[in-house]
Simulated assay, not measured.
Amino acid sequence: MAVPDIWARTNHSPSENSFNQSNPFCEMSHIKILAKTFLPIFFWILFFVGAIGNALVILVYWRYRGKKSPTDTYLIHLAIADLLFIFTLPFWAAAAWDGWNFKTVMCKIVNSMYKTNFYSCMLFLMCVSFDRYVVVVWPMQAQNSKLKRLMRHKLICFGVWVIAVALCIPEVMYSQTEQIGNTTVCRMIYPPSVSRTLRIIDLSMKIAIGFLFPLLVMVVCYARVAHTLLQARKTPKHKSLKMIIIIILVFVLSQFPYNSILLVKTMVLYAPAIKDCKMLENIATGFQLTQSIAFLHSCLNPFLYVFAGERFRKALFQMMKCMTQGPMKSPEQCNSADASQGQNSRRSSALFGRSKLGTSLALSSP
């Protein structure tokens, strides 16, 4: 996924403009209108919805930090990555409206934050699917090695962040501000020493790591999970299977159109002589629309993976109840009060899911 990108001569600049060779005389008036009217409002809506949803996930986890499971580790890191990505949207909303009015260092920081958290989001989604595969398909082994899994998951989370940070190095090196007409833009500006081949590799990695590889792992893992649930006896399975289908569909519908446009961009790099302004404008329009759809995923993650779980809803309601009872109580006081209501037995399971086979998915509904 790329940061907001409208290419040549627009009010909103790209961070990874691989079309430096595009016809500089293409005004792309429709893209200017789209950038100034639709994108600022859309980005601000995503910011508020995504910030509230992911902040609630982190808040509940913090107040009930003694009840985390290996799956919870991935979900919290996913919420953090989504939240950090969401925090870049106000900058792009302002840039879409009136150009980039921040310093070059902020251009590098915002681009790098976006890239880092996008890659980490996709990789954490992949990790969640693999963890659900282990828990459902191999429940006894997962239960017996729970402590080892928790430690292993922490190392994996660290590795995911390292990979994501490493992949944003081009943004740190090549993100710059540039004056185009009366507008200052923030985008990736490759020096002549960077060959077209390296740019193609960069775009190809976005498609492979940001979509194809996570999608492959998710489909394989959730297919095995669904097969196991269908084979299990006396196990509620319809809601879990429904959520599996929803998760895969949302991921594909939100990411596939965008990555298809990225593939077109990669192909255009092999044909730098293209001067058809109409074609470039159509690609740019498709890029903006599909990218906006792809951004929705960071807002939907809390609802798909967390809020749909019975355990999380109960923890959230209990936290809200505790916060409204006079002075703010500590997590320990809330936990103690909740235990007095006879809920200790249910608390032995993960915060975002239950341990029984049919409801072991962190995203399962009650």
Results as ranks from 00 to 15, higher is better:
residue 263 L to G: 15
residue 241 L to I: 15
residue 288 Q to L: 13
residue 298 S to Q: 06
residue 250 V to M: 04
residue 303 F to Q: 10
residue 315 A to F: 11
residue 316 L to M: 13
residue 315 A to W: 00
residue 272 P to W: 07
residue 294 A to I: 02
residue 325 Q to R: 14
residue 257 P to I: 03
residue 280 L to V: 05
residue 308 A to D: 07
residue 246 I to Y: 06
residue 327 P to I: 10
residue 262 L to V: 03
residue 273 A to P: 01
residue 327 P to A: 12
residue 287 F to H: 15
residue 306 V to N: 03
residue 295 F to G: 02
residue 304 L to A: 08
residue 286 G to L: 05
residue 254 S to T: 15
residue 254 S to M: 08
residue 241 L to Y: 06
residue 311 R to L: 05
residue 263 L to H: 11
residue 261 I to A: 10
residue 316 L to S: 01
residue 314 K to S: 14
residue 262 L to H: 01
residue 261 I to D: 08
residue 259 N to T: 00
residue 280 L to A: 09
residue 299 C to P: 03
residue 245 I to W: 14
residue 256 F to M: 08
residue 271 A to T: 14
residue 282 N to K: 07
residue 299 C to G: 11
residue 265 K to G: 00
residue 299 C to W: 01
residue 272 P to S: 04
residue 259 N to L: 08
residue 316 L to Y: 12
residue 292 S to H: 01
residue 260 S to M: 13
residue 263 L to Q: 08
residue 255 Q to S: 14
residue 267 M to K: 11
residue 320 M to N: 10
residue 329 K to N: 09
residue 258 Y to S: 06
residue 305 Y to L: 15
residue 322 C to M: 11
residue 307 F to A: 02
residue 326 G to M: 10
residue 317 F to K: 11
residue 288 Q to N: 12
residue 274 I to F: 04
residue 323 M to I: 04
residue 259 N to G: 03
residue 294 A to D: 12
residue 252 V to D: 00
residue 269 L to W: 03
residue 292 S to Y: 02
residue 318 Q to P: 03
residue 256 F to W: 05
residue 255 Q to N: 14
residue 304 L to Y: 07
residue 320 M to C: 12
residue 304 L to P: 04
residue 311 R to F: 00
residue 285 T to M: 13
residue 293 I to M: 13
residue 257 P to M: 07
residue 313 R to P: 04
residue 326 G to V: 12
residue 325 Q to I: 06
residue 291 Q to F: 08
residue 260 S to K: 02
residue 293 I to E: 02
residue 319 M to L: 15
residue 322 C to D: 15
residue 319 M to D: 09
residue 312 F to E: 05
residue 265 K to R: 00
residue 263 L to F: 10
residue 262 L to F: 00
residue 276 D to G: 08
residue 323 M to S: 02
residue 329 K to T: 11
residue 290 T to E: 00
residue 263 L to K: 05
residue 283 I to V: 14
residue 282 N to F: 08
residue 274 I to R: 01
residue 307 F to C: 04
residue 294 A to R: 06
residue 269 L to K: 01
residue 308 A to C: 11
residue 284 A to T: 03
residue 262 L to D: 07
residue 287 F to N: 15
residue 270 Y to C: 12
residue 264 V to F: 09
residue 318 Q to S: 14
residue 319 M to N: 08
residue 290 T to L: 03
residue 295 F to A: 00
residue 301 N to F: 02
residue 248 I to A: 10
residue 259 N to P: 01
residue 259 N to Q: 09
residue 320 M to I: 05
residue 244 I to E: 02
residue 306 V to P: 04
residue 275 K to H: 11
residue 306 V to L: 05
residue 317 F to I: 09
residue 242 K to P: 05
residue 295 F to M: 11
residue 251 F to L: 10
residue 270 Y to K: 01
residue 278 K to G: 06
residue 269 L to Q: 07
residue 313 R to L: 09
residue 329 K to V: 11
residue 328 M to D: 07
residue 259 N to W: 00
residue 327 P to W: 08
residue 263 L to V: 02
residue 250 V to K: 03
residue 268 V to N: 12
residue 321 K to M: 10
residue 248 I to E: 13
residue 315 A to V: 02
residue 273 A to V: 12
residue 296 L to D: 05
residue 249 L to K: 14
residue 244 I to P: 07
residue 282 N to W: 05
residue 292 S to P: 08
residue 291 Q to T: 03
residue 317 F to M: 12
